[in-house]
């Protein structure tokens, strides 16, 4: 098997142009999902009537269906939905002029919300209830208690899981090519289709994703070390008491 190295190198740099799209989908999904997922988690922990049931059903549905299918459904439904809305409000926008990355933002935000809410829910529950009680007992409001005491501690516990979710999100965006979004996978595939150099293209894609995900893992490792400095993470067998 011969690899066209020149093609690989050329395509590599071509595909890099798709990295901003990949990262922007990841970033937008995370930024939108974070506050929403937090409130979803709170609604389940505190058993908020109706909201809790809705959230549980939503999370179940998202996690029970393949991302591919979510993409296909959204990409088929949303444009015609937008068309109807635009027609009724009388705006002069052509639905097909909408940048397809918007659809990617929507699908991956919906998807990330669900996973992130479960991560937040479990992380919040790892924090000892006594921390909240102590904060309330010295006169802090629940909001103050959460933002200053509970969430910082929950965050440290959540970091490995959030890292996992982020990496999976980055890899998941490779499916956005189905919505004609010009991200890494789609660019490489298109370049490959000219001369049928699919193997080289796939290897390029692999390399780019490995680099991206390794950087993310490094960032999260640093974050975990910094945020968790108050903990005695290195357990000592001989206790200093």
């Amino acid at each position: 098997m011969e690899l066209d190295i020149k093609f690989m190198v050329d395509t590599f740099f071509l595909a890099l142009a798709g990295v901003p799209a990949t990262l922007s989908i990841t970033g937008v999904a995370l930024i939108i999902s974070t506050p929403v997922a937090f409130f979803m988690a709170i609604s389940r922990i505190y058993d908020v009537k109706i909201v809790k049931q809705a959230v549980t059903a939503y999370v179940s549905f998202i996690r029970g269906t393949p991302v591919v299918l979510q993409i296909l459904i959204i990409y088929s439904l949303l444009p015609s939905l937008f068309n109807t809305i635009i027609k009724s409000t009388g705006w002069n926008i052509n639905v097909f002029d909408i940048n397809p990355i918007i659809y990617a933002y929507i699908v991956f935000s919906l998807n990330t919300c669900a996973g992130l809410s479960e991560i937040f829910r479990s992380a919040l529950q790892t924090v000892n209830k006594g921390q909240l009680e102590a904060a309330l007992s010295i006169g802090m409001s629940p909001v103050q208690a959460y933002t200053r005491i509970i969430i910082p501690q929950a965050l440290v516990t959540a970091i490995p899981n959030i890292c996992n979710l982020t990496i999976n999100l980055i890899k998941g965006t490779s499916l956005a090519f189905m919505m004609t979004v010009k991200e890494v996978t789609s660019i490489a595939k298109i370049a490959a289709s000219y001369g049928y150099n699919y193997i080289e293209a796939y290897l390029d894609i692999l390399i780019i994703y490995i680099i991206l995900c390794s950087l993310v893992q490094l960032l999260f490792a640093l974050a975990e070390k910094h945020l968790g400095s108050y903990k005695n993470i290195r357990g000592t067998l001989v206790n200093a008491g």
């Binding site: 006594g130 921390q131 102590a134 005491i149 910082p152 501690q153 108050y230 903990k231």
Partner: peptide, 9 residues
């Protein structure tokens, strides 16, 4: 509190 409940962070 019995188990202190100091703010760990």
């Amino acid at each position: 509190f019995q188990n202190f409940n100091l703010f760990n962070n």
